[in-house]
Amino acid sequence: MDRHALFTEVKQLLVTGLRLDRPAADIPDDSPIFGDGLGLDSIDALELVVLVEDRFRVSIPDEEVGKRAFASVRSLVDFITEERGAQ
């Protein structure tokens, strides 16, 4: 999957999976996913783990890996790309 399409897909997943009230295109590539930006909490973080694992067939084994992967849309795209590359 090309990188640009992956950005779009990740943003779409955030919007539909976490029921965000904004268009996917409005989510910046580099701002934090968690914290004040998108109004998400730790339960949403756990939900995102499930969604990402299911959709992209990757594994997020613990909270540390999750925190790094979810730092921003870009870090999530990088994480998915690396994980799939390694598969």
């Binding site: 339960i43 949403d44 756990l46 939900e47 499930v50 694992e53 299911d54």
Partner: peptide
């Protein structure tokens, strides 16, 4: 269908 428990559905 879910590979992990979804806490959001259990709260």
């Amino acid at each position: 269908e879910d590979r992990r428990w979804r806490l959001s559905r259990l709260l």
